[in-house]
Design a protein around this nucleic acid. Structure first.
Length: 112
DNA sequence: TGTGTGACGATCG
DNA sequence: GCGATCGCCACAC
């Protein structure tokens, strides 16, 4: 675990996503930016990369992160998109089609 | 050391 | 409306 690692900030935010909710890459990027107060910018792209290299899937629920349209990740690093979908379904997250979660109902709205 | 390549997203022509 | 392009940074080569 690094100290100044941008990835760490991402992981910290992702850990806060409650069970049964999903967040977007862009949303995580913003939250990590505020929390980090870093001069470096965390972009949604960075978030995706960070989660792809998730060192601790047990404690970092990266399956709860989808893109802005609610689409799950084709290249989900721990078994592919079907695995990600399964994990979400088990938590009660509903899908509107094969690869899109119902953002209307399950999008995480963090408290201010 | 330089270059290419990413679980993305906003913008531009 | 869609593809190209860019921003951003870590990492493999």
């Amino acid at each position: 675990m690094g100290i100044n690692n941008l990835f760490e900030k991402v992981y910290r935010v992702v850990k806060n996503i409650p069970k049964g909710k999903v967040a977007s890459y862009g949303q995580i990027a913003k939250l990590a930016r505020v929390r980090g107060l870093s001069k470096r910018k965390i972009t949604p792209r960075m978030v995706g990369i960070a989660l792809h290299k998730n060192p601790d899937p047990e404690n970092i629920p990266c399956h709860r992160v989808v893109n802005k349209d609610g689409r799950i990740a084709e290249n989900y690093a721990f078994g592919g998109w079907k695995k990600q979908k399964k994990k979400l379904l088990v938590e009660g997250v509903k899908f509107i089609d094969e690869m899109h979660v119902d953002l209307e109902k399950f999008f995480w709205k963090p408290r201010p």
